[in-house]
Computed example of a mutant assay.
Amino acid sequence: MSSDPAPASNASLRALDLRVPPFPRTLPRVLELLHEPEITDPAALAEIVQHDPAATARLLKQINSAYYGLRRSITDVGRAIRMMGATTAAGSVVSLGMLRMDELADGAVDACFQRFIRHSEATGFLTRTLLDGLPTGPSAHGPAPDAADGLGGTGFAEGLLHDFGKLVLFYNYPEKAAALYEEKRFRAHLQEADDRTLERLVFGCDHCTAGAYAALELHFPQRLVDVVRHHHAPPPEADAASERVLRAVRAANLAAKAMGPPLAGVAPSEETIDWDTCAAQPVWDHWRPGADAAQDEAEPNDAGPSLMDRLRATKETVMLFTDFFVSPPDAEGDDAVPDTPRAA
């Protein structure tokens, strides 16, 4: 039986007594692009980013990093966005907003914050990889998309933001968050409670609810709100496309945890799992060769050595990909959004 409480309405989410973390003024405009059903327009994103010097510097730093291995430096942000893929570039702008939260990086949750950023980036990368680059059935065994196509694609933003609620909890309750996620202080006293139950006992809400609240306040696209709220279990009314993305986010989250402590993120209990435990989870049934799309996912199945081996082989790439997201951002201008007042 699920440990989730009854689903909260958008109105009840907005009644939570939480502050929304401050983000750059460019963020709402970037998220507006993600509202569009089509692929994010690189030209539109470049128009937004060119007015944010810190975001421009970050994107140019990333495209010229060792990850891409370019022979010549790129100095034009529009070209950088086209080469990275607009979805990945947009995700980078969101990540920069997270990294600008100096009060977290220098405070009680410093270690949690750094692991949270790495895990978020890794999950975004792996979600996109599962949806666009790895087989999803017996007839889809082609190679991953060529690197020249960029890193954009379905799922990156969803994977990047899936644990957004933990950032909200860090911001509102840094001391409690450090005790829960870093010191595992409460786990020793409540052996039977699962992670989200512990969060509700400590904070009054879990990270899924807190993240959905902040996502609504920041005007995230509804599909991203749904991922933040339901990434542990899809709602019964989810359509096929939403369920596919949610499934990929859950699988990517597991794979990141299996890659070890640097990418495992933060949780009240042990974050890492071994690859056998990862492969045995029901979510992998969708990628199992010969799987029936209508098969009940309640019965665990090994995802198969080929898929797990391919995921394990991406660890070095994922580590390199996350490296350029965790360095301190460049000096910030005056474009941060002021703190949002607490809800009445």
Rank of each mutant, 00 (worst) to 15 (best):
E47N: 10
E47V: 09
E47G: 05
I48M: 15
I48T: 11
V49A: 14
V49P: 11
V49I: 15
Q50T: 14
D52E: 15
P53G: 13
A54T: 15
A54Q: 15
A54V: 15
A55G: 05
T56K: 15
T56H: 09
A57P: 06
A57Y: 10
R58P: 06
R58H: 15
L59S: 09
L59W: 14
L59I: 15
K61C: 08
K61T: 13
K61A: 14
K61N: 13
Q62G: 10
I63P: 05
I63R: 08
N64A: 00
A66E: 11
A66R: 13
Y67S: 08
Y68D: 11
G69H: 09
G69R: 12
L70Y: 14
L70R: 15
S73E: 11
S73W: 04
I74T: 02
D76R: 04
G78D: 06
G78Y: 05
R79W: 01
R79H: 06
R79M: 05
R79S: 01
R82K: 07
M83F: 01
M84Q: 07
G85T: 02
G85S: 03
G85M: 04
A86K: 01
A86S: 04
T87D: 13
T87A: 11
A89L: 14
A89H: 14
A89C: 13
A90D: 08
G91D: 11
V93A: 07
V93P: 04
V93Y: 08
V93M: 09
S95A: 07
G97V: 03
M98F: 12
M98L: 07
M98K: 00
M98D: 01
L99N: 05
L99K: 06
L99D: 05
R100S: 12
R100E: 15
M101K: 00
M101D: 08
D102I: 06
D102C: 02
D102N: 09
E103F: 08
E103D: 12
E103W: 09
D106C: 07
A108E: 10
A108G: 01
V109G: 02
D110P: 00
D110S: 07
D110C: 03
C112Q: 09
C112E: 13
C112V: 04
F113D: 03
F113L: 04
F113C: 01
F113K: 00
Q114H: 08
R115G: 02
I117L: 13
R118V: 07
H119S: 12
S120L: 12
S120E: 14
S120T: 12
E121S: 08
E121M: 13
E121F: 12
A122H: 13
T123C: 14
T123R: 08
F125Q: 03
L126I: 10
T127F: 09
T127I: 10
R128Q: 09
T129K: 09
T129M: 08
T129A: 13
T129H: 13
T129R: 12
L130M: 08
L130D: 03
L130E: 05
L131W: 07
